[in-house]
Design a protein around this nucleic acid. Structure first.
Lengths: 199, 199
DNA sequence: ACCTGAACACCGTTCAAGT
DNA sequence: ACCTGAACACCGTTCAAGT
């Protein structure tokens, strides 16, 4: 009868506190990265620190709640690209979306990469559909001979996260990161006369 | 007359404490990564925490002291490879040495990458010769048409550190990391009939 | 049912007192 | 000249008391 995911099950003040925490977290992550102080977030939200932990028992749970729909969107975009573009173009375009997503907050590349390997993480399930869709993109590109066969999808995701990580280690704009991604992509593609994605 | 770098300038107990701290730090870094507790290191060395800070005012200073000669060695190896091998082989072989060095301790890739961009870091000067030698390897490979022209040496170092970082995010052996490096290297090399470094 | 904020544990860093 | 360890600041996390 009562769905625990339905907001109506929450008391009005709890609902408001949750929303305040999400807004404060989003702003704090943007300003200082996902490793910023949780205490500060609670203070910014005008909420006791215990309330933050009641709503989001771990930092990852908070990150997951803030980004939430982004991973569903990334999964949907993968499926759409898969349907509309060539296998190679689809994969390359999606990796660009992925690397740009990872640049949303400093430290996010590390958090997501950890989550992809930690089944107990709340982010893990949020990323599940995205991961499956990405694997499909890779498998299709490999079947078509566009991408080398000696690498699996999860290594490709990790390497892409490595590019995002490299991007946040020093001042780098989006163009620079996409350029680094293009270099990686050139390494992923077979070179039998395939067009390269230049800078 | 008195050289501050000469160990004889140090009191005997100071000298012994320094050695103990280095040994404890090396063991702790190997066990728990370079971000491990400095307090624990002082305790392991049977030394007050203040003594650790007296010898090594920052964590980076301690990392630098522990690894010290490794960066001189990496610089020398670059020069040697430059002299003995083809431009392409030399660069590829050196990047392999570099990525393996970065895997020495968990977190080292991040520390070194930060240091490369932070001129105030004690690691920065330790890396200076290595960085110059690496730039030479890249420049030579580019002059010979072995490596693409649209990328500079520091971006290559950052991307290589990104591969090492990707390697420490999930259980990965040396072969796996070198395989990821080979993919990156394929992206760096020009594909005009050059032999690829396969897995 | 949920919130608050004090309390605890942990860590980095400083510094007064000691030798 | 160097060492020690207590003291301080900061942060994550828990929980008793309150509504």
């Amino acid at each position: 009868m009562s769905d625990p995911r339905a907001p109506r099950a929450m008391r009005a003040d709890a609902q408001r506190n949750r929303a305040r925490l999400l807004a404060a977290a989003s702003a704090a992550f943007a300003r200082a990265g996902v490793e910023t102080s949780l205490d500060d977030i609670a203070r910014d939200a005008d909420v006791g620190s215990g309330t933050l932990y009641r709503h989001f028992p771990t930092r990852e749970a908070l990150v997951e709640a803030v980004l939430d729909d982004r991973y569903a969107t990334l999964a949907a975009e993968a499926v759409k690209l898969q349907a509309e573009r060539s296998p190679q173009e689809a994969l390359v375009a999606w990796l660009k979306l992925f690397v740009n997503h990872l640049m949303t907050y400093r430290g996010l590349a590390a958090t997501v990469t950890t989550a992809l390997y930690d089944e107990t993480s709340p982010l893990h399930s949020a990323c599940h559909a995205m991961r499956a869709a990405a694997s499909e993109l890779v498998a299709t590109a490999q079947r078509n001979g566009a991408v080398r066969d000696d690498i699996d999808a999860s290594t490709i995701l990790r390497l892409t996260a490595g590019v995002a990580w490299a991007g946040e280690q020093a001042p780098a704009d989006q163009a620079h990161v996409e350029h680094m991604l293009a270099v990686l992509v050139d390494g992923l593609l077979h070179d039998s006369g395939v067009a390269r994605v230049a800078s």
